[in-house]
């Protein structure tokens, strides 16, 4: 086996079909990048889930002066009632011992300012008086929040019970949609890439039919005849994979890190997850290219 012979054949093949090769590289790059983004969203979601799900609390908002809620009947809660409510909340089974924390309007305002630090107009418009008072309930089992929400809702002086889990759940379901969209696009592009590679190999086989005919005649082994074609596909796949890696790194820096600036994700995506995604997409990309080359060769290069 003479490596330099194979490589010169591969080089000639790639150069002759330059436009097709570029098309393959771009399709593979974008397809693999989409797949990689899907994988990255996947690991981001699972990291966030494990980070958030044991931190979620149930917020019990109280009736304040002017709270627009049917349950409050237009009346604010008095201090005595608040104390009584706290005792009642502590008795609900599933609430962690000492897990009921009161948040007054000033604290709520501070939290609000922190959450919307980037939105100056909103902070300016809101005043301390607009903030609701609330109890934060820590749960012994965050997964099992429903009976606690139900029990807290009916207590007097409670305007609304919000389970953070549901809010996060909405965010997660959005990410989930995004992930499936990315993976769907990836699958379509991978299919397109496979067809393009098939076409490139077919062109290549046609361009080199003299050479392959002579190779067959003088008894070159199948491997020797087919290897340059498969290598062409593999190299195109590899270049596409490298471009996809660059795109994924860009996605990490400009997409995932930007999102963490706006939303407190809690568990930012690390470089090792990016590396895993890149490795996986590279392997899949090259494998698909080699497979597509091989399948088309079987059809167009009779040995």
């Amino acid at each position: 086996m003479r490596a330099n012979f194979i490589f010169s054949e591969v080089w000639i093949g790639l150069r002759r079909n330059l436009t097709m090769t570029i098309a393959v590289v771009i399709t593979v790059a974008v397809g693999m990048a989409m797949l990689g983004v899907g994988l990255m969203i996947n690991s981001q979601v699972s990291m966030m889930q494990s980070y958030w799900y044991d931190k979620v609390e149930v917020s019990v908002f109280l009736c304040n002066q002017g709270t627009a809620s049917e349950r409050c009947k237009g009346k604010g809660i008095t201090d005595e009632e608040t104390t009584a409510l706290k005792a009642q909340l502590e008795k609900i089974p599933g609430v962690a011992p000492g897990g009921v924390i009161y948040e007054n309007q000033q604290q709520a305002y501070e939290n609000f300012k922190q959450s919307f630090a980037t939105n100056k107009a909103l902070i300016d418009a809101a005043t301390v008086k607009d903030m609701p008072t609330s109890f934060r309930l820590k749960l012994t089992d965050p997964e099992n929040y429903e009976p606690i929400v139900k029990a807290a809702e009916v207590l007097p002086g409670v305007s609304q019970v919000i389970n953070q889990r549901e809010l996060i759940g909405k965010f997660f379901s959005m990410l989930d949609t995004l992930r499936w969209a990315a993976i769907t696009i990836a699958i379509i592009l991978v299919l397109a890439a496979a067809l393009l590679i098939g076409n490139t190999v077919r062109l290549s086989a046609f361009n080199r039919r003299r050479e392959t005919g002579i190779m067959r005649l003088v008894g070159a082994s199948n491997l020797y005849i087919q290897l340059p074609f498969v290598m062409e596909g593999m190299i195109a796949g590899l270049i596409g994979g490298v471009l996809a890696a660059v795109l994924l790194i860009a996605a990490k820096v400009f997409m995932f890190e930007e999102i963490t600036k706006f939303i407190a994700i809690g568990a930012p995506l690390g470089w090792d997850e990016v590396a895993t995604s890149i490795t996986l997409t590279m392997v899949i990309g090259v494998l698909i290219c080699v497979l597509a080359s091989f399948v088309t060769l079987r059809r167009y290069l009779r040995v």
Binding site: R2, F5, E211, I214, L217, V218, A220, Y224, I225
Partner: peptide, 21 residues
């Protein structure tokens, strides 16, 4: 004849040996 047009005489003959390693 079935020669390779982009290779000279020597290369055409050598090709038969190159491809069988």
């Amino acid at each position: 004849f079935r020669l390779l047009p982009n290779k000279n005489v020597y290369e055409n003959v050598a090709f038969a040996l190159e491809v069988i390693g």
